[in-house]
Each structure stands twice: as structure tokens, then as C-alpha cells.
Design a protein around this nucleic acid. Structure first.
Length: 237
DNA sequence: GCGACAG
DNA sequence: ATCTTGTCGC
């Protein structure tokens, strides 16, 4: 992908929230559209899982999003796309989605593949208002989504067992909002929560299937590497 | 008021 | 997220 293929940076959408209060209110409104009753794509069947991630250059007000599609049976890349945009919102814990979503949507649009599942870097249900990035992206696209985060955010958890596959509840008070999942023996767990149209059980199963060798799912690793590469290629330009 | 806080 | 080199270990 050369610089010549770059299109206009994704601007901040009309009507996009400008204040924290507006953004939080929009989350409260959209939360009602999340579908939690569907099991989603079952593991073990043919599926294209798409990882999305973004890289920033706040200095230049630039964000690059990447979407990478993997065949879950082989973990081979079957599609890639990137998009550049302007930073649409400052980073505020709990409002991450407003920073990334416009550009992520553009990257997904350019992907010549229909995702069977979208794996987000961050949270879904595990969120102060139960509407994290994965929930938001799911509602906007209608696609099954899950969130796989590297940190527990504000939630509590007891360490899961030491073996790959061991899990423990991720708790907001006494409510389970996700699970800490050990993808590698003896390594810090990842934090999985449901986004849209997926059950927690399937979200965990897919996370483990997508992370056979490293702590993070291959979808996330591939998307992370791609958006970083793309951002560098932009600065070097 | 202070500290914590996905990326 | 991002700033950043080498280094210890399997």
C-alpha cells in the first residue's frame, strides 16, 4: 500500500460529541441497541475474525486505524485495510470509542471481507456505562464483536489459575462484566468482555483460539503491527 | 480533596 | 497510546 493510495483523512463526523457529557449521554442512549442474547459465531466452524486497532500521532492530530482479517482455522491473513483520520476526541477513560471509531469504521469499509467476528482492543460490556468500544462498534456495524483488553481498567479480579485457559470473573462490584483469561501459562491474563451479538463463553473460546502462542490474539497483534507501520510510513512521508 | 483510570 | 536500549532467559 503506497502513499498514493491514501485517501482524505477521515474527519470528525458531523454531530460528533464535543464534550464528555454529550459523549456519555450518547453511550446511555446507544446502550439500548446492544444485543446480548445471541451466542454469536460458534468456535470450531469456518470464520473470518477481524482485528482492529489504532495508532496515534497526537502532535500531528493523526490517527491510523487498521483492520486485519484472519481465517480462524489457519490464522492466515485473508484481508487487510488501513485508514487515516483526525483525532476525533481526547482520551478520557470510559470514552475511548469516540477517539477511535470514525477511523476504524473507515478501515472496516475498505476491507474486502465480511467479518464473522470483530475483535477489539479494549472493552465491551466491561465499562462504567456498560458500553465500551466493542459494544459501540457492534451497534454501529451490526457485526458480532468482542473486547479483549490488556488491563483490568477499574475492575477487580482474582488471579485466574496458572494454566492457559484458566479464567476468573472480572467484577464491577458484585456484577460480572467479563473474565480474566489466561492465554499463556504463567503470563498476565487478558480481559475479555462481550461486545455485540456474542456470548461471553464464545468470546473466551475465540480469544483462546486466536491466541495459541502469544498473550494477545493474533488478530490484535496483526492489527497493531499494521497500524503502527502505516503511521510510520505517514510520518516518513 | 486525592487517586485510579480501556487506548 | 507514546517516550525508549539493552538485556536476561527459554
Amino acid at each position: 500500500m503506497s502513499a498514493a493510495e491514501q485517501t482524505e483523512p477521515v474527519g470528525v463526523p458531523p454531530g460528533w460529541p464535543t464534550t464528555e457529557a454529550e459523549a456519555a449521554a450518547l453511550q446511555d442512549e446507544l446502550r439500548g441497541r446492544v444485543v446480548l442474547g445471541e451466542p454469536g459465531p460458534p468456535p470450531g466452524e469456518p470464520l473470518v475474525a477481524v482485528g482492529v486497532d489504532v495508532a496515534y500521532d497526537d502532535e500531528r492530530d493523526v490517527v491510523v486505524a487498521a483492520a486485519v482479517a484472519l481465517d480462524t482455522a489457519t490464522l492466515r491473513v485473508v484481508g487487510e485495510a488501513t485508514a487515516t483520520g483526525r483525532v476525533a476526541f481526547p482520551y478520557v477513560p470510559g470514552l475511548l470509542a469516540f477517539r477511535e471509531i470514525p477511523t476504524v469504521l473507515a478501515a472496516l469499509d475498505r476491507l474486502g471481507v465480511t467479518p464473522g467476528l470483530v475483535v477489539c482492543d479494549g472493552y465491551g460490556l466491561a465499562h462504567p456505562r456498560r458500553f465500551g468500544l466493542a459494544s459501540h462498534l457492534g451497534v454501529l456495524t451490526g457485526l458480532p464483536t468482542i473486547g479483549v483488553a490488556k488491563n483490568p481498567f477499574t475492575f477487580r479480579y482474582d488471579a485466574p489459575g496458572p494454566l492457559r485457559g484458566d479464567t476468573s470473573p472480572l467484577l464491577d462490584g458484585d456484577e460480572e462484566v467479563g473474565r480474566a483469561v489466561r492465554t499463556r501459562a504463567g503470563v498476565k491474563p487478558v480481559f475479555v468482555s462481550v461486545g455485540h451479538r456474542t456470548s461471553l463463553g464464545n468470546a473466551i473460546a475465540h480469544t483462546l483460539a486466536l491466541a495459541p502462542a502469544y498473550r494477545l490474539p493474533e488478530t490484535t497483534r496483526a492489527a497493531d503491527a499494521l497500524c503502527r507501520r502505516a503511521l510510520q510510513g505517514l510520518v516518513a512521508d
